[in-house]
């Protein structure tokens, strides 16, 4: 009789543990498979056009990092991440030859962000933007 009741007791305990384990595995599983809420759209930044003169560059905070807007001599506007793809230093705009230079290890990029020379493994990341009247809406 004693064995019997001990068995029932243990079986109930194991059942309880099993139920707890089932809940503990189901929750992460559902979270893992559940459709994710669309990533909160990156905050857009508006820059007045006047702040980006021809041949000039405007550095600003964007998405927790530094970005740059330039207006090439022909008038084309480019928006790029200013973070060097080599080790993460902030590139500098060189007005005379319309290139980006990274001060850390001399990585050189064109105005469009393509690598000219130096250690960077990838071009600077392009950022979408739209012209909106007197301002440039980046993001």
């Amino acid at each position: 009789m004693e064995t019997r009741s001990r068995r029932t007791f243990l079986a109930v305990c194991l059942g309880g543990i099993g139920a707890a384990a089932a809940c503990l595995t189901t929750y992460p599983l559902i979270r893992y498979l559940a459709p994710r809420q669309g990533e909160a759209a990156r905050k857009k930044v508006a820059i007045p056009s006047a702040e980006v003169p021809e041949g000039g560059a405007k550095f600003f905070e964007f998405d927790g990092s530094t970005a740059v807007l330039i207006r090439k001599k022909g008038g084309d506007i480019v928006a790029l991440s200013a973070v060097c793809t080599h080790l993460g230093c902030i590139v500098q705009w060189q007005k005379e030859n319309e290139q980006f230079l990274c001060p850390c290890h001399g990585g050189l990029y064109t105005a469009d962000g393509a690598v000219v020379s130096g250690p960077p493994p990838k071009p600077l990341e392009k950022i979408p933007f739209v012209l909106n009247g007197g301002s440039i809406l980046v993001g």
């Binding site: 992460p28 599983l29 979270r31 893992y32 559940a34 994710r36």
Partner: peptide, 8 residues
Amino acid sequence: EVPFGWLI
């Protein structure tokens, strides 16, 4: 990014 992806 995936919730609990690290665990799996």
